[in-house]
Design a binder for these strands. Structure first.
Lengths: 188, 188
DNA sequence: TTCATTATTTGATCTAGGTCAAATGAAAGT
DNA sequence: ACTTTCATTTGACCTAGATCAAATAATGAA
């Protein structure tokens, strides 16, 4: 998934606008398992995932990791709250596979917002998209069985479901590894 | 909670800007139990709750209502996804107490966005706030016991917790009425 | 390839919280 | 005040999924 294409899907930028915007992104190649943000740090960048998979997670008092979100190819990845408010992150952000990311700082977003009026629309649409996705997951978690939540995962993130460790998915779906393993066994 | 005060908290508007913005809102007095939006309709307005409490919910296949969100005094209320994308709402939106609301259409927001550059910032901040709140609830639901989820509710929405029917809160927290009733009994 | 480490599966319990059903209490209309 | 309707509580019981523990399987480093 190409960043330029994605941006055009959101807002009909001209060729020049698009180049102006893309120029503020930095291409980064990140090796597997690298942490981009730790809990308590401020998340300085918004990332676009061109290749690879990212995830955000937190660690419960009992030491267990809970996956909060997966970021597949074509997604914007960040510790959203921390990034937009430049406040301490409640989450870790990591890359699960060797990844190619395009990153942009909040300062650069602000520059672009000042420079291109259409940028505001872009940011607004992106945050509303994120909101919609989170609400969808919320609904899946709120009143569905473990099995139904897994089905939701498969339909929403078919690719991710088979590329990341089972335990990550289980905690993302609010169930234990063992339960997810048993669900998988009885599939199809 | 006053709308003007809230807007000023988000963005340092001048007196004139503030008046220009407020002029695009319509004051509405809505009686208890009125439905603002039905499932399948397009949510045409964003509401600010000055007085009263609203909630959004959906109805499961088995006919049971699931509360998706509460909107207390000082909150912006809408079927967010439907409103911003002017798409069909997955939710019902209703008022649980006689309410005083200030509403604005998406067209009017667009007018304001075109007129005041600071408006973009306002909308962005409001949507990010919503996002943060939804993410918080998601975390509460994902790996907490019924009791912990109730505690979260009390701390996040102390006023609402004692003003709306128990069943609404129970489904909001992803548990049955009976369970919530028992939790309440053992409080304090 | 071998060994060490980490991930997944499987089995045997156990329990939080769901379901069903009935009793009690609170509101709202006449 | 009386009745109907709706909300909450309480009790008895039951399951989805957690926990604990051990056996395989997969991955990676040397």
């Amino acid at each position: 998934m190409d960043l330029a294409d994605l941006l055009k899907e959101y807002v009909p930028f001209t060729h020049d606008e698009l180049n102006g915007i893309l120029a503020h992104f930095t291409k980064e190649s990140i090796p597997k398992n690298e942490l981009l943000v730790r809990e308590g740090q401020i998340c300085r960048k918004l990332y676009f995932v061109e290749k690879g998979i990212g995830r955000s997670y937190y660690i419960k008092e009992d030491g267990k990791e809970v996956t909060q979100w997966f970021f597949g190819e074509g997604a914007f990845m960040s510790s959203v709250d921390s990034f937009f408010n430049q406040s301490q992150s409640h989450y870790y952000l990591e890359v699960l596979e060797d990844a190619v990311l395009y990153s942009i700082s909040l300062d650069n977003i602000d520059l672009l917002l000042a420079q291109y009026h259409k940028m505001e629309r872009l940011v607004r649409l992106i945050t509303i998209d994120m909101l919609t996705k989170v609400v969808n997951k919320l609904n899946a978690l709120q009143f569905q069985t473990a099995r139904e939540r897994y089905d939701y995962m498969i339909s929403e993130y078919p690719d991710i479901s088979y590329r990341v460790p089972l335990g990550h998915i289980a905690s993302y779906l609010g169930m234990t590894q063992e339960t997810l393993s048993r669900i998988r066994k009885n599939e199809g």
